[in-house]
Design a protein around this nucleic acid. Structure first.
Lengths: 194, 194
DNA sequence: TTCTAAAATGAATATTAATTCATTATCTAA
DNA sequence: TTAGATAATGAATTAATATTCATTTTAGAA
């Protein structure tokens, strides 16, 4: 099993992403992944320990990249509102530009949560980012003091995931990033008239 | 395969729910379900066509029950706000009182969406309920006119599912129904100060 | 060009678990 | 009480596919 990410490694990696996204982890077969990558079945085992390990590496890697970008996006904002807006936009942007990842995150994360506790859960990190933003907003005075942060952050994450989930189910045809501003407007102002 | 729901059928049905919730559909085995139900492996095939059919019947049945209750809850409200509050409360109540169902809905629905198009998707029905409520609120004047209903309804569903998902991951230890009112307050008023 | 190590192959193997069905047990009605 | 029907059993079968490894191919050094 190689350490550095050779061209062949990436080839298998990406093929696995496509096949997992299309069939789901359990119904995807090693042969399908190998054939899509244009290599023999046995070759996968030179690069990955086993089938689980492919999914594990896939999610680990994608998680680290996305989280890095989210961190940068938040850091680029000054006020809480700017930070929130940047975070949501980045989130939607990343998932829109990598549909396979979006599908896999949506459907296979629970499987990994059960068996691979060493994965840093992207939700956990995301919720921590949100906590910081909400608390900053409360200090700034732009966000209500009477809110239970633990609830608000889940509420926001759930809403974004719901929008992504719908976009995935609908065949990813419309522009996801365009929903960032209306979404943030909803969090901020609510649906009530006046 | 029997038609009427005998005691043994329900026994297998519920055992399957518990085993699917614990291990996930693919890792759950027929032997585990049979053994939990206290019957022989072959007996399952007198009541269900195959393993897929067990999950199919489980989700179909639970969906119909929950949706009926949700409909009643909404019908019991007069204003849009009352209806929304009743719907969210009912949703949280039903999932809280049936944790196996909550787990299965959270993790296995995508699998079914792929293979069993005849299931009426609970999300779809739910979103339609929400559409009606939002439109009623807009007519009443209690909900903003400038909202895109298609976005708002997903936003609300996503937020509720996010809260349930967190509750499931946290081992279902706290009171989920207690979150209904703070959640509705968030949808209505937003997080912004003033 | 030749040699050696690394990489790749894919047929054979091993494993796991869903499903079947010949047999046995249980129930019901005459 | 018993014959026939119905229900249940669980060992044997079947099917699918993840993984291994003896063999072949490739690439780079001498």
């Amino acid at each position: 099993m190689q350490k550095n990410k050779s061209e062949k490694y990436l080839n298998i990696f990406n093929s696995a992403g496509a096949v997992f996204a299309k069939y789901g982890f359990y119904k995807a077969t090693i042969s399908q992944i190998a054939s899509r990558a244009g290599v023999a079945d046995g070759t996968l085992y030179l690069y990955f320990k086993n089938k689980d390990d492919i999914l594990y590496q896939y999610i680990s890697y994608k998680t680290s990249i996305v989280f890095e970008k989210m961190n940068d996006a938040v850091a680029a904002g000054k006020t809480a509102e700017e930070k929130l807006r940047n975070l949501i936009r980045c989130h939607l942007q990343e998932f829109q530009s990598d549909r396979h990842m979006a599908v896999i995150f949506q459907s296979e994360v629970r499987y990994l949560r059960d068996i691979q506790s060493q994965i840093k859960d992207i939700s956990k990190m995301y919720l921590d980012l949100l906590s910081d933003i909400i608390e900053q907003g409360q200090i700034e005075g732009s966000i209500r003091q009477d809110l239970f942060v633990g609830l608000v952050k889940r509420f926001i994450l759930g809403a974004v995931e719901g929008v992504i989930s719908t976009w995935v189910s609908a065949g990813s045809r419309y522009d996801l990033v365009a929903m960032a501003d209306p979404l943030v407007d909803l969090y901020l102002n609510g649906v009530k008239e006046g």
